[in-house]
């Protein structure tokens, strides 16, 4: 199955069905060497299924999947020894200490901590002060750092991380992504999935996935460019009433709550800010704030989602 290609990961028309649901419905994408590729989508979108197929843990129902030019069905053993994988639920061995966990994973991958220390050094120094602590007693952020060390210890060519930042605090998330970017700079190809839209901007390319289908694959900048419409952020004192009122207005297209603001798009380009304010004031809204803003990935995601429906 050596089909000379420049891609580290190549997925063509991948389908995966379980007994009752079709989790992945025909997905195609490819990842080049040294790329940081993000699979962005909500829970149940099919991210974990795709990653488990890539890591040869599950069979694809249909379609072609190759990793490092090896077929995931025939050559699964070769793939397994060359990838680093961090499963979603991965919580290490709770009753082993930090150092024991790392040493164990080094050992079963036939290497030692010392051999690849360079690779994990940046990350490991952060948790080294706690190396005698049991993994079960680490904080969420530290656990993920340790898990990353364990996935990296055998110096894999590809790193596959399934929702590594879920359930981790904002600061640790940021640190974690900084580490990923440093690893990318060392030439490691990284595939990462996340439900957090804000993390998409840190990827080289992202695939927005929903209900087992990829809605868009592009660089984060391009994805935003493709939004192509005027986006308004609206706020008033009675936010719930505001949602109801906006949805009942004929010229309003989409309304999505977004923090303390509502992001809305209109069916017409003719309306300006003052006209909008006056319409809302008629509906007894006070403290109205309206401004045109630039779309972010989440806006794009929401829009793609509503159009695909």
């Amino acid at each position: 199955m050596q089909n000379q290609s420049n891609y580290i990961v190549e997925v063509t028309d991948l389908k995966k069905s379980y007994e009752k649901v079709d989790a992945v419905k025909g997905v195609s994408f490819s990842v080049s060497k040294g790329e940081l590729f993000g699979l962005i989508g909500p829970d149940g979108a099919g991210k974990t299924s795709i990653f488990r197929i890539l890591t040869t843990l599950m069979f694809p129902t249909d379609g072609q999947v190759s990793v490092l030019d090896f077929d995931v069905i025939k050559d699964y053993k070769k793939i397994r020894s060359n990838i680093g994988y961090m499963p979603q639920r991965f919580s290490l061995y709770q009753d082993l200490s930090v150092e024991e966990n790392l040493a164990f994973f080094a050992r079963i991958f036939g290497t030692t901590i010392e051999e690849n220390y360079d690779l994990i050094k940046d990350i490991y120094v952060q948790i080294e002060p706690f190396k005698d602590r049991l993994a079960g007693k680490l904080s969420g952020g530290m656990k993920q750092k340790l898990a990353l060390c364990c996935a990296l210890i055998h110096s894999p060519d590809v790193l596959i991380l399934d929702e590594p930042t879920t359930g981790v605090d904002a600061v640790s998330r940021k640190e974690f992504w900084e580490m990923l970017i440093r690893l990318k700079d060392k030439g490691i190809t990284i595939l990462v999935s996340t439900p957090y839209m804000d993390e998409a901007n840190l990827c080289d390319r992202v695939a927005l996935i929903q209900n087992g289908e990829i809605m868009s694959i592009d660089t984060p900048e391009k994805v935003i460019e493709n939004f192509g419409r005027k986006l308004w952020a609206v706020k008033s004192d009675k936010i719930y009433q505001l949602i109801k009122d906006l949805k009942s207005l004929e010229f309003v297209d989409t309304v999505f709550p977004f923090g303390e603001f509502l992001h809305i798009t209109l069916k017409t380009e003719d309306l300006n800010q003052d006209e909008l304010i006056s319409i809302l004031t008629e509906n007894n809204h006070k403290g109205i704030q309206i401004q045109v803003i630039e779309a972010n990935i989440e806006d794009c995601f929401m829009q793609l989602m509503s159009t695909s429906e």
Partner: peptide, 13 residues
């Protein structure tokens, strides 16, 4: 249950 089996399977073990 803890997901460590996934890692063990992916490992050369």
């Amino acid at each position: 249950e803890l997901g460590t089996m996934e890692i063990l399977l992916v490992s050369p073990l």
